[in-house]
Simulated assay, not measured.
Amino acid sequence: MRRILGVATAAAVMFAGATANAQAVDQKKFNVVGTWNFLTNWKVLEVPFWEKDLPAASGGKLSGNIKSVTELNLKGTEVLRLLKSGVYDFAAALPIYVDDGGAIIEAVDIAGVAGTFKMSRDIINAWMPEMQKVMRERHGAVVLGTFTWPEQNFYCRGDIKSVDDLKGKKVRVQGASQADLVKGFGGSAVTLPFGEVVPALEKGVVDCGITGTMPAYKAKWHEVTNTLFRLPVGFTASVWVANAKTWDKLSPATKELLQKELAKLSDKSWKTTEAETEEGVACTTGTGTCTQGTPGKLKLVKPSAADLKARDRVLNEVVLPAWAARCGAECAKKWTDTIGKKYGLTATAK
């Protein structure tokens, strides 16, 4: 009898604790800005999280009114400004679109550094203290999760057989370090919003563009280019951020739940994106199984050992020195000590 009473008492305590914790979670519907509404991140990860997963985890207390940058017709650089002003409570932010303190944020995805998804995630985790400081002090934001995009490669009009063929080409880039990489190859860097790349390629305004494998397919880059030159450039590691004022006002239980659920979303995001990278190649080239629609017929060109060596040379001689100059000596030294030494890299301005 005592044992039965003991079990019943323990169960009652557990139930009471769970109920108290649930009651401590705020009732809140956040205004959220996500990414592009025709890409996997939006359809498979962002919308389900804010409209289904988070409400389920919070007993219906937390949810998000999420809008895509496509629907809102926002430029990437506008997202953090709107978050800081309080228009949005949460946002998916890409380091390449950060203005103030951009070089510090850019450190997590310097073109040519990360060779694998694991390496990219290790880098962003190692640099997180620096990112948090910049986001809080300059953008009134708090980083709560990370995500990524498929491997970034070159999509070009005409034949591209090696890095030598990029010389003289006008290449659409994302961010300053990609521009430095292209210039190091002898090309000209052109900055264009993602939605304007297809007409620019079609009209010959640019000869090539850099983007992820599946985004290239879903944005129909394969219809206006001829070659996929699969020279890895990076992964565009990105972050989920909250407006600091919104965050600071939340109850401890609400913060704990959001951190837990956004950590789950981060894990799912990295796994999902890595898995679709190869299919993105298959979908644009027709060299494998494509479940997303009719595959394209791009010529797939894999980089040679000489191409990879050339990329590494440009990384060390052009990209890292240019980034170090933008970030400053103290920032560059911290990056070298925190990240560079682990991978045999040094960032020093010339």
Rank of each mutant, 00 (worst) to 15 (best):
L74C: 07
P303V: 08
D248L: 05
A347T: 05
G209P: 03
D159Q: 13
Y97V: 00
V33Q: 00
I160G: 08
R326Y: 03
S162C: 10
S266G: 06
F235A: 07
L74S: 09
K84E: 10
A310E: 15
M128T: 13
G209K: 06
K29I: 08
I210M: 14
A349H: 05
N316I: 05
R157K: 15
F38L: 12
K302E: 14
G76F: 05
I104L: 14
E256R: 04
G204Y: 11
P303C: 10
A305W: 07
T277S: 14
T227P: 02
G115I: 09
R157M: 09
F38W: 09
P95A: 01
D307L: 01
E278V: 04
A107L: 03
F30A: 07
M14W: 11
V182E: 02
F235V: 08
A8F: 11
A253M: 07
V314G: 05
V33M: 06
Q178T: 07
A141I: 12
G195H: 00
G60F: 13
I160C: 07
I96R: 02
A305E: 15
L39R: 02
V197W: 02
A103W: 09
T227E: 01
K271Y: 06
W247E: 08
C208T: 01
N37C: 01
G102K: 02
T246M: 10
E261M: 12
N153D: 13
D109V: 07
K29E: 14
V163M: 14
Q259K: 14
G76K: 05
K167C: 11
K84W: 05
P48H: 12
V32M: 01
V301E: 01
R172G: 14
S120I: 01
L192C: 13
G59R: 10
Y155W: 12
I210Q: 08
V241D: 03
P55T: 09
S269P: 06
E202A: 15
K75R: 14
E274H: 00
N31S: 15
V171L: 01
K297T: 14
A11M: 13
E106T: 11
K271D: 13
G59H: 08
W323A: 03
T236E: 12
G186E: 06
T272Q: 09
R138S: 01
S188T: 15
G184D: 12
G101I: 02
G186D: 06
G60N: 12
K333E: 11
A310K: 15
A92R: 00
V87E: 13
I123V: 13
R3M: 08
G115T: 08
R138D: 10
T116M: 04
A329W: 04
A332T: 10
F229C: 11
G112N: 09
G195D: 14
L80E: 04
L231F: 06
A57N: 01
I104F: 07
W221S: 01
F154R: 02
M131E: 12
T272S: 15
T273H: 04
D207C: 12
A92G: 04
K203R: 15
P55L: 05
